[in-house]
């Protein structure tokens, strides 16, 4: 009996303690080991990119060519070996993250905001608005996204800004589609009618009632899109349309290393692993985040 009362009092006390949304999401995210693993890997990459200047001398290790140490295998001096002109691969990967990650995050931010907005308008607005927006999106979807990005960069010229625009534009249509379809499902729910009945205006209904409910597919799409965007940057650079040498970038490193794969596997393997790890960690984190944000799984 005594035991029972202790239990009830503790649960009541627990209930009274108010936790912020952020703390609650974090606590639930911690439960998911894979998500934590993803977070750790991503943090290491991000921290390395931020403190790259302290770790390596950009000029000396990542840019300057040194023919005497070309294509050296991994050693204690150059942990991941050197490339065809004697630059340290680890240093180039770390500095390469400074390009790939911000560009990738910026593109999904742009694509998610614009695509989400267009999708929400198409899903919630009139049939005409829906038709106009979605037919334009269909036109973009009909062109393979890499091809579209190539076309945009080729027209605008290759610079980081144009690269960003190109990848963002090619990522807008899938976002718009996904948000539109979940908005259409959610707007027919009774709680949206209830929100109208309490006098909420359209903007409030879209942003406060519909979009939070459409968060799960949005987050999944966003993490896949970051990963895809890292790949797009890499592929554009691989084709020579992205980041221009000698600036280190993962895709261009892959591209350069591919001709030496038989004699020096490390030149293209390690940038590839870097891309893979980034994408993997983002996917794991995104999956965990989606679960953690779902209120039904709370407690």
């Amino acid at each position: 009996m005594n035991f029972m009362t202790t239990i009830t009092t503790t649960t009541i006390v627990k209930r009274r303690k108010k936790k912020s949304q952020f703390v609650m999401v974090w606590e639930r995210l911690k439960q998911n080991r894979l998500a934590v693993a993803g977070l750790v890997i991503l943090s290491v990459i991000v921290l390395a990119a931020i403190f790259a200047n302290l770790l390596f001398d950009y000029e000396a290790m990542a840019v300057r060519q040194n023919a005497s140490i070309r294509l050296n295998p991994p050693s204690s001096e150059h942990w991941l070996g050197t490339d065809e002109v004697g630059r340290d691969i680890l240093a180039r990967i770390v500095f390469g993250a400074r390009i790939s990650l911000p560009v990738a995050f910026a593109t999904i931010l742009i694509a998610a905001v614009i695509g989400g907005l267009l999708g929400a308008i198409a899903g919630y607005g009139s049939r005409t608005a829906d038709n106009i927006i979605m037919r334009i999106m269909d036109m973009f979807l009909a062109i393979p996204s890499t091809l579209l990005a190539i076309a945009i960069v080729a027209t605008l010229g290759s610079s980081i800004r144009n690269l960003l625009i190109a990848i963002a534009v090619s990522n807008i249509p899938p976002f718009a589609r996904i948000i539109r379809s979940s908005v259409i499902t959610i707007r027919n729910e009774e709680f949206i009618e209830a929100a109208q009945a309490i006098g909420a205006n359209d903007r409030r209904i879209i942003f406060k009632h519909i979009l939070p409910n459409a968060m799960a597919p949005m987050i999944v799409q966003a993490t896949m899109c970051i990963a895809g965007s890292v790949l797009s940057i890499a592929s554009l650079s691989f084709l020579g349309l992205g980041i221009q040498p000698p600036t280190p970038e993962w895709g261009s490193m892959l591209s350069n290393g591919r001709q030496y794969i038989r004699v020096a596997w490390w030149v293209c393997t390690f940038p590839g692993i870097a891309i893979m790890l980034t994408i993997l960690s983002l996917n794991l984190l995104g999956d965990g985040l989606r679960d953690a944000l779902d209120p039904k799984l709370k407690n």
Binding site: E189, F191, A194, A197, A200, N213
Partner: peptide
């Protein structure tokens, strides 16, 4: 007028509350 002078109670309480907000928040919203 909606929710302020004339308010409505819907048929199915299971679906007329927004699942992503706490119940208190939804009352406070009105």
């Amino acid at each position: 007028v909606r929710g302020n002078k004339i308010s409505m109670i819907f048929q199915d309480p299971m679906t007329s509350l927004n699942p992503v907000y706490s119940v208190g928040f939804q009352i406070a919203e009105v």
